[in-house]
């Protein structure tokens, strides 16, 4: 499993753009918002947590189709399926690799991008914390969506259509916790719900995703 993680990370680095593209997209979304809603600091500060969450979510979506598609095309997925590695484990590792190359950089960048959105003091901390807890769920749900669409020729658009509704609860609790935290309100409930979603998703979705891959390659 470690071998697979190392390989996927190495591939992401060699391919270039693995880390950079999602981040650049995130930055552009964050920059575009003030152009659309106006430069008033107060408005920007109020919508900042939500915008950063939506931006991170969309940036995450960009690279989802690569989780399994490349391995499917070059035949590695067939070979992995016959290897002594449970498919569930492979799914978890690949979701983890996706998170390390996408979710984690986004999480680290979000507090900095918050400055562009006129975010105030505790807000930076809470956007970091909520994304840190929530982005693993985004990667895992995304891996499930990628597993469903892995064999399809025009899977990319369909993948977005399938995954975005599944992202709703994560987004609601994540953005709510970030907003409340930034405003100095109690965050325990949404944070716990967010953590619960991540834990549940990581515990159960690998089985559904592995089943989908087995169906897709047979």
């Amino acid at each position: 499993m470690i071998a697979l993680l190392v390989r996927d990370l190495r591939l992401a680095v060699r391919a270039g753009g693995g880390f950079g593209l999602g981040l650049a997209f995130f930055l552009i979304v964050t920059v575009l918002v003030p152009f659309a809603v106006g430069p008033e600091g107060e408005t920007l500060a109020r919508i900042a947590p939500g915008i950063l969450w939506v931006g991170a979510l969309l940036a995450c979506l960009l690279s989802l189709d690569r989780i399994f598609q490349l391995d499917f095309e070059d035949g590695s997925l067939d070979l992995l399926a016959t290897a002594p590695l449970p498919m569930e484990g492979a799914v978890v590792v690949k979701a983890l690799a996706h998170w390390l190359t996408t979710g984690l950089p986004l999480t680290l960048a979000a507090p900095v991008f918050g400055i562009l959105m006129n975010m105030q003091a505790p807000g930076h901390w809470w956007i970091f914390v909520t994304l840190l807890i929530g982005t693993p769920a985004l990667s895992m749900i995304g891996a499930f969506g990628a597993a469903l669409t892995v064999g399809l020729k025009r899977g990319g658009l369909l993948l977005s259509l399938l995954v975005l509704p599944l992202y709703v609860p994560t987004l609601i609790f994540g953005a709510e916790a970030a907003t409340r935290g930034g405003a100095g309100m109690a965050v325990t409930t949404p944070i716990l719900m967010l953590a619960g979603i991540t834990a549940g998703v990581v515990a159960f979705l690998p089985f559904a995703a592995a089943a989908a891959i087995r169906i897709n390659i047979r």
Binding site: I2, L11, D74, L85
Partner: peptide, 23 residues
């Protein structure tokens, strides 16, 4: 299989080492 499952950006040794470690 028909397809070799090779990763284009990895070297020959890296490709082989990966499968060796998987097995």
């Amino acid at each position: 299989a028909h397809a070799d499952g090779l990763k284009a950006t990895l070297s020959v040794a890296e490709n082989l080492t990966f499968w060796a470690r998987v097995y």
